[in-house]
Amino acid sequence: MKIAFYGSSLLSSYWNGAATYYRGLLKALSQLGYEITFYEPDVYDRRNNRDIEAPDWCAVVVYDATQHALMQVAACAAEADIVVKASGVGFEDEALLRAVLDHARPDALVVFWDVDAPATLGQLRDEPDHPLHAALRQIDLVLTYGGGDPVVWAYRAMGAKECVPIYNALDPETHYPVASQARFACDLAFLGNRLPDREARVEAFFLDPASRLQEQRFLLGGSGWGDKPLPANVGWLGHVGTRDHNAFNVTPKAVLNISRDSMAANGFSPATRVFEAAGAGACLITDAWLGVELFLKPGEEILVARDGGDVAEIMRTLTPNRAKAIGASALRRVRGEHTYAMRAAVTDTVLRQHFERGTVEAA
């Protein structure tokens, strides 16, 4: 079956946290026989900050950020059996959604794939006239980056016919243990772009513990932090490309995951970073969120912090040997239970059920 997928970017992770999610999941779907074309706009200087070239498992069409180019690529939806519009594409999202819905064939499966469902649902609650309200009546299926039952129930209440979470996971061919690199040597590292709905949590869970632990070294990776006042023991690396993520994860004694506000409040929303760090064998500390134990076991495969004070206490007592043991346990767990091949199998089942249901109804 042919999939037309309209998303932010497959080729660049620059200001694009969904990149490795798209890559891992779509590669695994291609291995199940899906023929995929990914359409991404040329925005945010991503063309000059590519992490990968177009892969052999997916065709990629990069289009200009103009209305004319948007309409041209939207017309390609007519060629697909499955049409996917992702959230957060980054250029005229509402117009793209409308155009894709208009061009999809009547017999095609139309999917809205939400990579930030808690935030999207919050916006829908605040904006009763948002175009997605009406679009949900035409959309056959909502898939989400995560969110568990709270997101499923909320989307159904908004009028979605069906909502299924497809969680982040590990691509073991991309994220795996490597040799450490001196430039990433530190006690605790955090990788994340500066975003309005996460900055206060970065201050609380990362910068505050750094201020308390002046004898330890902290590293901050990600875009947008250049003018942020940092404690003297915090180094800033700027954008860290995906080719360096394994070394970034495996070199520090521990790495930190900090959820965005809406995902932390909703729960059941493990970031890509959780599985990528675990896949490299890193000792991961995460801010506390509901459902973490469904993915990694607290205290044995991941360390959980309720606030910056917890992070500081963990770092005061964490020994290199314990950090290595936690990282090794996490690596075993994600390789055994949380790979994109497994997520793709779930996705494949959901998609095929829709086509089989349509065939029965047509008969």
Rank of each mutant, 00 (worst) to 15 (best):
A4W: 03
S8I: 00
L10C: 04
L11F: 03
Y14R: 12
N16L: 01
T20H: 06
Y21W: 07
Y21V: 00
Y22D: 08
R23W: 04
L32H: 15
I36P: 02
F38N: 02
F38C: 01
Y39Q: 07
E40H: 03
P41T: 04
D42S: 09
N48K: 10
N49E: 01
I52F: 13
I52Y: 12
D56H: 12
W57Q: 05
C58E: 05
C58V: 02
A59R: 15
V60Q: 00
Y63F: 15
A65R: 14
L70G: 02
M71T: 12
M71P: 04
V73R: 03
A75G: 05
C76Y: 07
A78Y: 05
A80R: 01
V84H: 06
S87Q: 09
V89I: 15
E92P: 03
A95W: 10
V100E: 04
V110E: 05
A119R: 14
D129H: 14
L132K: 07
A135E: 13
L141G: 08
L143P: 06
Y145D: 13
D149R: 14
P150H: 08
V151Q: 04
A154W: 06
P165A: 09
I166Y: 06
E173F: 05
T174E: 13
S180P: 03
D187H: 14
D197V: 02
A200W: 06
R201N: 04
A204M: 08
D208F: 00
A210G: 04
F218Q: 09
P229G: 08
L230A: 11
A232L: 12
N233L: 01
V234A: 08
G235L: 08
G238K: 06
G238A: 03
V240S: 10
T242G: 11
T242H: 06
N249D: 14
V250Y: 05
I258E: 02
R260S: 14
S262N: 15
M263K: 13
G267A: 01
G279P: 10
G279N: 08
G281R: 12
D287L: 07
D310Q: 06
M315A: 10
T317N: 14
N321W: 02
A323G: 14
K324Y: 01
A328F: 01
A330R: 03
M342T: 09
R343A: 13
A345D: 12
A345F: 06
D348I: 01
V350T: 12
V350D: 11
F355L: 11
R357L: 06
A362W: 01
